[in-house]
Nucleic acid binder design. Structure first.
Length: 273
DNA sequence: ATGGCCTTTATCAAAGGA
């Protein structure tokens, strides 16, 4: 099972990239952030023609999240329960026995901004909800644009970013608290190239100079971390014409059903004279 | 070098992103 996340920075502009990426990578689930579309404008027909179901929670101009999937989801949730918020940043559904939680964590703007306080409150509410979800579900995937670079190795220039929004201690502590609940940062379950990032500023030729941050993440509950076989960042999308400033991240997990399929294939091969 | 780019909405610039 392949599960991916991508902040597309406007699905209207990036729809061709998304359709190409679905065709090339065949994820079972692709979680999108910053769709920037009201629900009535969501490209349902194009996504459907690509062979994907879609659920979405959007608004005008800003934010907006979506889940594209080969199989339909159920038990959809579009907000952190009990947290009053008119910004569309949460979308969750169950696929088979996996609850997927797509998040677009607030940016925060700067440490002095009210938006930074909102970010920390939002992360606090998310943490409390995750605590409840972990009791109810064995298989949880929490993925999206976290707007937090958790460790020094996730930042191209630590001196430049020290104490800045996206890398400040309170944000990084909030991220660590999520890991403390039992979630694993899937990217760090494997050996990875040095200087791996998921976002590069449009300015300053930042991508060409690899001046990036790793702020898009896929976190897995213990049950899923055990069966995760890969986590990769697809930098190639950042080289496309009119790219999103974020690259997609994808995990592969081997579900029991897939294992038994593989076993029967092996058994079949063995029986074959 | 404190800007630089991109998207949206709505004008003929501003706001937000990260």
């Amino acid at each position: 099972m392949k599960i991916a996340t991508w902040n597309v920075n406007s699905l209207k502009i990036r729809l061709p990239h998304v359709l190409d990426w679905l065709a090339a990578n065949q994820p079972d689930i692709l979680c999108l952030q910053e769709t920037k579309l009201q629900d009535e404008n969501f490209p349902v027909a194009e996504i459907s023609a690509a062979g994907y179901h879609a659920i979405y929670a959007g608004q005008k101009t800003y934010n907006g999240v979506a889940l594209l999937s080969k199989r339909a989801g159920r038990e959809v949730v579009t907000a952190i329960p009990g947290f009053i918020d008119d910004q569309k940043r949460i979308l969750s559904a169950i696929y088979d026995d996996v609850r997927v939680i797509c998040v677009y964590v607030p940016n925060g703007q700067s440490l002095l901004s009210e938006k930074y306080q909102y970010k920390l409150k939002w992360l606090g509410a998310l943490n409390a909800w995750l605590r409840e979800l972990l009791i109810k579900h064995q298989k949880l995937v929490l993925l999206g644009d976290f707007n937090i670079a958790p460790e020094e190795c996730d930042v191209h220039d630590v001196t430049l970013w020290e104490g800045q929004v996206l890398f400040s201690q309170p944000e990084r502590e909030a991220f660590r608290e999520v890991l403390g609940l039992g979630f694993a940062d899937s990217f760090r379950l494997f050996d990875q190239p040095e200087k791996s990032y998921t976002w590069w500023d449009y300015r300053m030729m930042a991508f060409r100079r690899n001046m990036g941050l790793r702020i898009d993440h896929i976190l897995l509950s213990p049950e899923l971390a055990k069966i995760c076989t890969a986590c990769t960042i697809d930098r190639a999308t950042r080289k496309l014409e009119r790219p999103s400033d974020h690259a997609p991240v994808m995990v592969e997990v081997t579900m029991e059903s897939e294992e038994s399929e593989n076993l029967s294939l092996i058994a079949g091969a063995r029986d074959d004279p």
